[in-house]
Write a protein that binds this DNA or RNA. Structure first.
Lengths: 231, 231
DNA sequence: CGCATAGTTGAATGTGCTCAAGCGCCGTGG
DNA sequence: CCACGGCGCTTGAGCACATTCAACTATGCG
């Protein structure tokens, strides 16, 4: 988790990230306060109550965004991918926890700085609005997903989503990929138990819809069959 | 469902709505294209595929935002209250359906017009970003809510949320209120069946936590007891 | 090698779902 | 005015499915 200033010219997603809409001058202003950090799996990127660096862009890797209630139970409410936004603006009370799922890198910014930049730079505000709207859509898809009754529907839908996310091309889904989540994390995301997730996966494999390669490798054998299970 | 131009000077929420950040001139520009409409319970405010008037502000009443999948099943993903945003920007493919829950009034705008206004007026973009971020937070709370295992937890959480929403003052929750949703709609929202919602409510009443007054009247008898059930 | 952690599998329990019947309310029409 | 039918809500019985508790295996790390 070593620190460094945020050098945009070395940034692999400088074109896709929200920073892309900023001019040279604003970018340098951001760089002055921003921090770039590396994380390994399990590291906390933004802690629940952190008010200093409450905002970040994911540069590389993957992260989970979770609520954590009184008894320490974690509930994953979203996954983040490169160029995605981490942390909430204008939301002091929200106790969201952001954690690296794989080795990752993120660009951290002080909340107030971003907020003031948003107010002074229309393009940034528009860009962030776009991104947040997308996140909102994703959150609503997740609601749709976990309100499915049967565990097979939830797991199948999640697998299809990962297949899409794992694909380099937008048009085609990947047929083989690695699950970025542990069974426990999948369970948290889907509102199920670890055991049920495990059983459901073995069931899907028994029925020839998927094939497991080790604990995290998945091969989709019958995409249409999986899609049919979702509904 | 009678139409009318959008007269902002008659608007009861002109101060709270996103329009508040606009100057006189922009407001008039909005008014030129905007339409104000009344709806009664069950009316569609924004249809799933509507691309003309894809965006609106709720002025009065309450609305539900739902997805509707292939077999016609409706899934409520959010509730909207006055000054709330209806419809998605930058999201052409999203098939969200917005429906009035009570007699309501909304201000409809062509999507492109809002999008161009967002790009030219930083204050509007910032304001909408704020609102969308809030919506995102609410969506994530809903995820949190429906991922609770037991039906009592879900129903209790929903009741507490309504109690808060029904209260005029922010500090105190209302103790007695009317459910704005039918049993079926609560079921859609919570990912349960009508029967389970009904049974759970009778169970909560039997245990002395709430009291039912007719089909929709609710009196909270033991708020702490309800809160304890949520976790 | 041995421990710790993640994942799988089994048996028993419990909870929500399904199917089905019954109730109360309200508006319609005879 | 009352009978009828529709609709929303409730209640019951049986069943299917996910959870729980528990043992066991596999994998990875010291």
């Amino acid at each position: 988790m070593n620190d460094g200033p945020a050098f945009c010219d070395q940034c692999t997603i400088a074109d896709r990230a929200i920073c892309a809409v900023l001019g040279e001058a604003e970018r340098e202003e951001l760089t002055r306060y921003g921090r770039r950090r590396r994380y390994s799996r399990g590291d906390t990127i933004i802690a629940a109550g952190d008010s200093n660096y409450g905002f970040a862009t994911l540069i590389r890797g993957a992260a989970k965004i979770a609520t954590i209630d009184a008894d320490g139970t974690e509930r994953i409410v979203a996954l983040a991918h490169p160029a995605g936004l981490l942390g909430q603006l204008f939301a002091p009370g929200d106790d969201l926890h952001v954690m690296a799922l794989t080795d990752s890198e993120a660009c951290l910014f002080p909340r107030e700085q971003i907020e003031s930049l948003v107010n002074s730079h229309p393009a940034l505000a528009a860009r962030m609005l776009q991104e947040t709207t997308r996140d909102l859509g994703r959150a609503r898809s997740l609601i749709d997903l976990i309100s499915k009754r049967k565990s097979t529907a939830r797991v199948a839908a999640l697998l299809l989503e990962f297949a899409r996310a794992a694909s380099p091309a937008a048009c085609h889904d990947a047929k083989a990929f690695d699950l970025p989540l542990s069974r426990g994390e999948m369970a948290q995301l889907l509102g199920l138990t670890i055991e049920t997730v495990s059983r459901t996966l073995t069931g899907l494999e028994r029925d020839g819809l998927i094939e497991r390669r080790g604990a995290h490798g998945i091969v989709i054998r019958d995409q249409d069959g999986l899609t049919a299970l979702v509904t």
